[in-house]
Design a binder for these strands. Structure first.
Lengths: 209, 209
DNA sequence: GTCTATAGCCAGATAGAC
DNA sequence: GTCTATCTGGCTATAGAC
């Protein structure tokens, strides 16, 4: 949450910040169409009219929240993907940093995925963003390391998909996962902690020569 | 689509079937809150009042569609999970059959995940269903095969998560995936075809002794 | 900046003719 | 069973007092 990073108590936050954080929370759990401006106002502890005063419309408020959410994740992904580290190290760093991050924002993955599916017009908008996740360097590196005989021959795109899938899926499908393997919320987070090393191990085992 | 399986042309379908198929389509792409009864009626080529005549309310119609969607997937999952096949064979069969199936219903995974997240009350309802995916036998089998020295020691739940994640994620996060690795719809489905063997290879490579 | 009150619209649901 | 017309409630957005 914002408060966490800004080190503020709720009472110290500006009205705009309160609205933003409340909107972040409500949009994440309900999605754009499911969210209600009234609920956001209640959550922020202010009046509904204030939402429009600061953000004009539900869509603008949503856009601010969504791009901010995306902006939280993308830069660290890129930093790791574009570093000079060898592949195995990149995989370890990515998995560790991604999971650590989304443990603090457990609804972020499903929120981003859901809204990218339901509002395809956002896809175009975020693709122009400099901060968008850009794996092209990583994809080349995979080919290089195959050529060097470090890893087995493999489709770079498939490998990239594997990495994303293994890390993001359990969060994106949280309730389904909890229901199917029959675990509590605490056990879920315990499992996610373990996954920080499990995933790298699995993937590296699968591709190393 | 229903028509495909029933081998009917649209004109031959009963009104109830037309409504159901239209609802299936609209709910999948818009979600419960995003869907409009008017859009479903238009899609079905009949009047809005008919929806209520046959299904009473939007919620009942949605419930019928959702449980049907889930019922399509769960039985084949269980059939494979509960067979007497050795683990590696089960993994191969599951991945192949799951991907083949959702290639025909590419929005099903995201639909199920999204609605389980947005309507937690459905979780309880479907968990009581006999047809729910039940991996308990598979989890025991993993422990057994570890004991027999066939596969490396590994957390059974993590392995199960890996399998689900690798297969379901690309469909659930379709638009995000297409945007990030920058591929067309056709290339996406090509990649998914390749994944039928890629995933089993990766997982089996990672765990075999 | 912040509130109350309300406009205006849209969506789900129903009445009632055929 | 199928339609048109309409009710009713809820939601976004705004007007206007303070």
């Amino acid at each position: 949450m914002l408060t966490k990073w800004l080190n503020l108590t709720v009472s110290m936050m500006s009205t705009e910040e309160k609205i933003f954080e409340a909107a972040f929370k409500v949009f994440q759990s309900k999605g754009f169409t499911g969210a209600r401006m009234q609920e956001i106002a209640d959550e922020a502890g202010i009046n509904k009219a204030m939402l429009h005063y600061f953000f004009r419309s539900k869509e603008k408020l949503f856009e601010a929240v969504f791009l901010n959410a995306f902006g939280k994740l993308a830069p660290q992904v890129n930093e790791i993907f574009n570093s000079e580290d060898p592949l195995f190290e990149k995989i370890e760093k990515f998995v560790h940093s991604y999971i650590s991050f989304v443990i603090d924002y457990p609804f972020l993955p499903q929120f981003i995925i859901q809204e990218m599916n339901n509002n395809p017009e956002f896809v175009a908008k975020f693709l122009k963003d400099e901060k968008r996740p850009n794996p092209s360097k990583l994809l080349k590196q995979i080919e290089t390391e195959i050529g060097l005989g470090i890893i087995k021959p493999i489709s770079p795109k498939q490998l990239l998909l594997d990495i994303f899938a293994m890390t993001a899926f359990p969060f994106a499908a949280q309730n389904l996962v909890k229901g199917i393997i029959n675990i509590s919320n605490d056990e879920f987070f315990q499992l996610m902690e373990e996954r920080k090393i499990h995933i790298s191990e699995q993937i590296i085992n699968a591709i190393k020569k």
